[in-house]
Amino acid sequence: MWIIIILIILLISLAAAAFLWLRPATGERAEIWVDGELVRSVDLSKIQEPERFTVETDRGVNVILAEPGRIRVESADCPDKVCVDAGWLSDSAAPIVCLPHRLVIRLSGDASLDTEVG
């Protein structure tokens, strides 16, 4: 009986994971959020040369590398390096997360904007 329950949960989770992760990304704009606040957005479709910048908080530093159409965390001083290991974010709806630094990089929004107010 238990095997069946576990198998059902496994199947539902697999289906949900496949749906969430294989879902195409919604935008060409990468947004970098720290602590629930949008600190920077990069239009990946307009980048011609690799652009490197650092996001520094009192928790630590993430060095982010943006290239045409994709973005990644190149290095970070967080303890787990999960954000670095996540590699390029280009066409998946799953964001890059650096939990120790509370940093999230995700694709979304309108690619035509250079910045935002409000």
Partner: peptide, 19 residues
Amino acid sequence: VAGTPELLVYLPVLLVSGI
């Protein structure tokens, strides 16, 4: 704690890995 609802995306994957 981190105010990052994006993490919910990982839930199905974490359930599979948990199993």
